[in-house]
Write a protein that binds this DNA or RNA. Structure first.
Lengths: 188, 188
DNA sequence: AATTGCATGTAAGGAGTTACATGATTAA
DNA sequence: TTAATCATGTAACTCCTTACATGCAATT
């Protein structure tokens, strides 16, 4: 009795999108990796089976095509699919149980050499920087290409910015703190 | 081939702690729920079996006691356990694949009534407020009872504050944005 | 007498990841 | 010819959660 499946609903939602309009498993995967990667991820081992499940439950409708001999299956959301999606969206989101490995490792920091901890934080800082830059780029793009962005995607982008900034700031502060600690412990 | 197990290392780390010095499964669970809940969680269905595994691998040492007839098993970390813990702590932390249900639901917001979305965000805002208050309380306590807090726990506390603040701010901004959208759509 | 807290556990079950397999098409 | 991209899929594996079970002790 693990947490209930979320993959079906991401797929349903993406198939319902108008602008980046993915229709196949492959396209769905790309949209996830390129557009919503900062708050969601899926693996192929999950997408393809779920696509079949959804088709079997008639929440989506499959249409196999051969564009120049190459196999490709296009899916479209059905009215029942729309209804299922809407019902799920209206349901209060379950919040993930916190499990942050980096913070845990810092919490047990007394068992580790401080420079190693600093290394962990530097990696985190670079990741936060990259995420922030990506979100900022999209925000800028949203200014010029309004058609590609809904008000909702701007809200999610704003989440990316604020959270990345918080992460970045925390990493920088903590690196500084640890450097001071290290200097006190090992004065040259 | 799921992500490698983290539970053993939390247990190892907590058993190595000096101040909140949990020794039994029950105490470990309490420390997790009361002290590191803002970045970690474990269930009993995980703690007790792992405790036995660790004992079998001699990373911890079990000692059954009966304090006035009540069953209680105390564990202590062994030198091998210390070594295993240190090795893991020095290893770069794996970052969790992002999977944020709230942001996802907002991303598909065009399929939902705006007041429902506002409701989701209000719950998130309250949770962030509570988390912030908790972290702020601990930070204050750290000022008076220095013995209870290491510099490392202060760093993790700071993470809690910054992240909660970011969440709070995002929730408030987004609620305001959605209210404006709703007013534009349904002018009275 | 009943509830809450202490204390330890097990069974069932699933969501999701990793890794591998397969093949066609296009560009360098 | 080689590599990258398009495109779909399966097998194995496991971590972790939920829910339940059990019983003693202390409090109300």
């Amino acid at each position: 009795m693990a947490r209930t499946q979320r993959t079906p609903f991401v797929i349903l939602g993406l198939l319902g999108l108008s602008d980046p309009h993915p229709r196949s498993g492959y396209e769905i995967k790309k949209v996830i990796d390129n557009i919503i990667a900062h708050f969601w991820s899926e693996s192929n081992g999950q997408i393809y089976p779920v696509l079949k499940q959804l088709a079997a439950r008639e929440l989506i409708h499959a249409q196999a095509r051969k564009s120049k001999g190459r196999k490709k299956i296009s899916y479209a959301i059905t009215p029942q699919g729309q209804a299922a999606l809407r019902a799920w969206l209206a349901t209060p989101p379950e919040m993930a149980k916190p499990r942050d490995e980096l913070i845990l490792k810092l919490f047990f920091g007394s068992e580790t050499e401080i420079p190693v901890l600093i290394g962990h934080l530097q990696a985190h800082r670079e990741a936060a920087k990259a995420a922030l830059a990506q979100c900022a780029f999209w925000q800028k793009e949203a200014g010029s290409q309004q058609a590609k962005y809904t008000p909702f995607s701007l809200i999610t982008l704003r989440a990316g910015v604020l959270l990345s900034e918080a992460n970045l700031r925390w990493a920088e502060e903590s690196i500084a703190t640890l450097r001071r600690m290290d200097a006190t412990k090992n004065p040259k």
